[in-house]
C-alpha cells in the first residue's frame, strides 16, 4: 500500500471514528433522557448529549486540516492541537456524564433495596 493511501485510510478511519463516537454518546443521551422521565430524576442527559460535540469538532478539524492547509506545517500543527484539545475536553465531559448517571443508578438501586 502506498504512503498516500495509508494516510488517506488513517484520515477516513479517524473521521469516521469521531462521527460514530458522537452518534453513540448522543443515542446514550437519548436513553438517559428516557430514564429521567421514568425516574423523575436528573440523569444529566443534556450534558451527555452535548459532551460528544467536541469529538465531532475533532473530526471536522481533521477534515479541514487535510482539505485546506496541507502546505503550511505551522497551521497544520495548530489545527491538529486544537482537534486534540477538543477530543480531550469532550472525552472528559463524556466521562463525567456517564459517572453521574452511574451514581444516580446506584442511588436508585439503594433506594429500591431499602423499600
Amino acid at each position: 500500500m502506498t504512503e498516500e493511501l495509508l494516510q488517506a485510510y488513517s484520515l477516513v478511519t479517524a473521521v469516521a471514528g469521531g462521527l460514530f463516537f458522537w452518534i453513540g454518546f448522543i443515542i446514550f443521551g437519548i436513553t438517559a433522557r428516557r430514564y429521567s422521565v421514568v425516574f423523575n430524576k436528573a440523569t444529566y442527559y443534556g450534558l451527555m448529549m452535548s459532551a460528544p460535540s467536541g469529538i465531532l469538532i475533532y473530526s471536522l478539524l481533521l477534515i479541514f486540516r487535510s482539505a485546506v492547509f496541507t502546505k503550511n506545517p505551522d497551521i497544520n500543527f495548530w489545527i491538529q492541537v486544537f482537534a486534540y484539545v477538543f477530543l480531550l475536553l469532550s472525552s472528559f465531559l463524556c466521562l463525567i456524564s456517564v459517572l453521574k448517571l452511574n451514581k444516580l443508578i446506584d442511588e436508585l438501586k439503594k433506594y429500591r433495596g431499602t423499600k
Binding site: A14, G17, L19, F20, F21, I23, G24
Partner: peptide, 22 residues
C-alpha cells in the same frame, strides 16, 4: 505509517462498538 493506520482502525472499531451498543 502502519502503526498510525492500525491505531485509527482500533479507534474506528471502538466507536462502532459504542454506537452499536447505544
Amino acid at each position: 505509517l502502519l502503526l498510525k493506520a492500525f491505531s485509527f482502525t482500533c479507534f474506528f472499531v471502538s466507536s462502532l462498538l459504542i454506537a452499536l451498543a447505544s
